[in-house]
Design a binder for these strands. Structure first.
Lengths: 147, 147
DNA sequence: GCTGTTAACTTGACTGATTCCAGAACATGC
DNA sequence: GCATGTTCTGGAATCAGTCAAGTTAACAGC
């Protein structure tokens, strides 16, 4: 059902940027790579990873790149309640997240109820709904053990 | 199915506070009243409403009261992505929210799929899930017209 | 009703995430 | 190569929310 997700190479990243008509720069490649390698990482971690790879990069550049890549659709920004913004590289598939109440760990969850889970709200007050984002809350395996 | 929701009086708020073993103070009554009267209001609006009623109240007091009432279960804190924290007085019933992409308006939505909508995630990575929060995104009636 | 205890409020400073700005550096089309 | 428009740098600003110390006031017990 799910083929092995090949780890994208620098060339892949390059092509993704070109396809989005964005210039290919060091910070952008590094950010793309960092997010692919560290799903659900917050901005600060990403800055750390990028700096580890490139040396000195301003936090401003990372914020800028993250926003550019997000609006270009190469990244997805998620904002779990009680946490700072995080980014992930899985885009385009309708998946959601579990957040651990205790340690804040995040994992991906494919929705069980098909592709548009709760899109059929009973009474939407006249809103035109086009997306439903689900955040599950609970305890991760580690925290369950330490209860 | 749904009886008329009586607007709570100051006496009701008083009793709610006592029931939660919280002291009855002016700021607390004013905050409770403000949130009941302005659902989905952000902290700043609540501060405004409370000051309009009581005169000078420190923002710290309002933050403090909001947290106390939230942990006591009298209020619910919601954090829509891209917006600051908001509070509402509907607690205890499993309902969700629609957020307008354009103007940020928020409305309540009762979940269509019963009482525990998407709690059955297909693969929860070993997480023990106990709650699902759904945020619908779309356009409110007003913004649909202005498209 | 008075009083002591202790929770709640005030004041003011502070943190941490994010954004804005102006100038320097750079990728890319010609 | 060169011009040009975008991107990056560094610093400062903003904004929601938190911390800490001291003062005030709710309310339980007399």
């Amino acid at each position: 059902m799910r083929e092995t997700r090949r780890v994208p190479t620098a060339t892949d990243f390059r092509q993704m940027l070109r396809a989005a008509s964005l210039r290919v720069t060091g910070p952008r490649l590094a950010v793309l790579s960092a997010v692919h390698g560290h799903p659900h990482a917050d901005t600060d971690s990403i800055i750390g990873v990028v700096r580890g790879e490139l040396g000195a990069v301003s936090h401003q550049a990372v914020y800028d790149v993250l926003r550019a890549l997000t609006t270009a659709g190469l990244l997805r920004r998620i904002e779990p309640p009680g946490s700072v913004a995080r980014y992930e590289a899985r885009v385009g598939d309708n998946h959601h997240h579990v957040v651990c109440r205790s340690c804040g760990a995040i994992a991906d969850v494919d929705c069980a109820v098909g592709f548009a889970p709760c899109l059929t709200a009973s009474d939407a007050h006249g809103f035109t709904i086009d997306e439903a984002e689900v955040v599950y809350r609970g305890l991760c395996p580690t925290c369950v053990l330490n209860t």
